[in-house]
Design a protein around this nucleic acid. Sequence first.
RNA 1: GACUCCGUAGCUCAGCUGGAUAGAGCGCUCGCCUUCUAAGCGAGUGGUCGCAGGUUCAAAUCCUGCCGGGGUCACCA
Length: 590
Amino acid sequence: MASLAKELSAAAGAAFEAMGLEARFGEVRRSDKPELADFQCNGAMAAAKAAGRNPREIAGEIAAKLKAHALVLSAEVAGPGFINLRVSDAALSARAEAVRGDAMAGGEKAAAPERITLDFGGPNVAKPMHVGHLRSAVIGDTLQRLLKFLGDTVISDVHLGDWGLQMGHLVTELEDEQPGLIYFDAGYTGPYPAQSPVTIEDLGRLYPQASIKAKADEARNERSQKAVAEMQAGRAGYRALLRHFIDVSVEALKADYGFLNVSFDLWKGESDVDHLIPGLVERFKAAGLAEESDGAWIVHVAKESDKKEMPPVMLVNSRGGTGYHTTDLATIEDRMTALSPKPERMLYVVDQRQALHFEQVYRAAGLLGLIDESRLEHIGFGTVNGTDGKPFKTREGGVLRLADLQEMAVAEATKKIDAAGKLPEDMGPGERADVARKVAVAALRFSDLMNTRITNYVFDLDRFTSFEGKTGPYLLYAAVRVKSVLRKAAEAGHQPGAVAVTEDAERALVLQLDGFGAALLGAREKRMPHILCEHLYSLAQAFSAFYGALPIASEPDAAKRASRLALADAVRHQLETGLDLLGITVPERM
RNA sequence: GACUCCGUAGCUCAGCUGGAUAGAGCGCUCGCCUUCUAAGCGAGUGGUCGCAGGUUCAAAUCCUGCCGGGGUCACCA
C-alpha cells in the first residue's frame, strides 16, 4: 500500500487529466492547516492560470471527483482554490497497519535506482582525523545508508589521501631517525618485513616534525619532493614503507569511523590509481586536450557560457609531478573500469570549498569521455564553526582531533546521564557506558545531519547532548520509551492487534507516519539528510503527544489497547528504521 | 574584482520548483506525575522574513539592484 498522500495525488492527478489538464497539478500533501484538513491540493490555481479558467470552478470539479474516492471522507474548496481533504478513520487505520508490517516501515523504493559510487571521508594517511572530517563522514555515511535502503546500488570509498608530499615527508623523516632500516637501502630488492617499523603514534610525530622543517628549509623540502618522485617511479623500499604507513593508518581510521558507525565498502586511496596516471596523461595529450603552459601540462575546461573565470586543470606540473586534479581523474577512470557493475553516477561528499576543484575535474573527465560530466555530483557541505562563527578550534587555538571530540561527547553524555539519574537501578556499568556511547553518537550525528548540508553550523556540545529539544538524545529517549511501553505490555500479556483510529492524537500520529516515504525520497533527491531528521523529530513529537494524551498499555478496553499498542509498534518500527539510516542505534533501556 | 553560499523570533535553525493567520528548538511565563520512562506533555510569550524596486489574483519563496557576512579563484592536497 502506497502512502495516503501518494494515493490521493494519483487520484487528484487522474481527475485533472480527465479535465484535459496536467496530472502534476494533482500533487497532494499534508495540510499545513490541521484544523481544516488532513491533506491539501493547491494545483487548481496553477492549473487555472495555465488553462485560463476560474480556479474555484476547477477546484470544485476536482473535489467532487475526489469525494467518491474510497480513502476520502470530505473534500472542500477553500479560499481562492485550495482543495482540503479529510481521510476516513478506516483509511488511517489501514495505513498504520501497513506501516507496522512493512519491511521499509512505510518508505518506498526510488522510482529509478542507480548504480552509484559514493566518495566521502577523504582522511589523510599519517595525519589524525580532526573535526573537519566529521561532516563528510556523517553525511556520506547517511547518504550511503539512505540510498542503499531506497534501492540504489552503492559502492562507498574512503578515498585516502595517501599520495603526495606528505608521504615524502614521512619517508625522509623516518630515514633521519632510523637510517639503518632496510627500506632505505636502494640496492636491496626484498622481501621486506611484514611488521611495520612505525606505529600510528610514530606517524603522528614524524609528519608534523618534517612539515615544520620543510617550511623553514627549502633543501629539506626538496628532499621530500625527491622522495615522492622516487616513490612514484617505483622505488621498492619506499613503496613498502608506504604500504606500512597506509596499513597502520587505516587501522586507526577504522577506530575513529567505527565510533561514529561509519563504514566503507572500499578503502582505496590515491596511491591505488597512480599506475593509471601515465596512460591518462597520454590520452589527454593524444586527444589534443592537453597543452603545455609555463612548463606544465594543463587542460582548458572553460566554456563559452561561463560567467566566471575557470582556471585550467593542472594535469602535470612544471616539475613533472601530478597533483590531486590528476589523481581524481585517474580515480574516475579506475572506478569506471575496475568496478562491477559499472557506476552510472559518482557522488563526492566533500567540503563546499572544493566546489571549483570538482567542477574542473568533472569537465575534464567529460572532455576525455571517462563519464558524462552530468553524472558527477559534488555534495558540498559547510564548515563546523565555533561560537565565534569561525571554523572550530580548541581552546588553545589548534585543530580539534576527532578522537578528542568523541571523548568530549562521551564525557558530556555521561555527565548529563548521571545528573539526571534516570537510568534503571539494576543497570550495570557496562550497559551504562554503552548507553553513554550511544547517546554521544546520536548527539554528534543528529546535530550534524539536522542542519542543512550546505550551510555552516555552530558546534555547541552542551546543546547537542541535551535531552531537551531537537536533539539526538531526545529522539533516543522517545524511541526507548516506545520500546519500554511495548515491553511492559508484552510482559503483562498484552499484544498489539487491529488498528482502529478514532482520537485526534491517533489521527495526527498516523498522518505523520504517512510522510516517511516522501521524506526519504526528498532526502535522496536533494542529497539532504536533514529532511529525514525533520520527519523523525516530528514523529517523535507526535508520539510523545499521543503518549501524553491517551493510555496505551494501561488502556482498560482490550480492543483499544491492542490498537494503540499496534500504533506504538508502528512508530517504533519507523523510528528505529529511520534512526538506523542516520547511523543512530537505539538502546533497549535508558 | 569575478563567481558562489548565506542574511527569517533574544539565540540556533527549518520553510525557498509562489499559495491560506511565516514554523521548530532553546530561553522566558503558567499548568500537568496515587496509570504505561515528567530526559515528557499542554498553553502562552516572541518576527518590518537584510534593504529597495519589479513580476503576479497571490512573494520569505521568482527577477533586478544595493547593503552586510562566509568561501573560492592553475603547479599544497
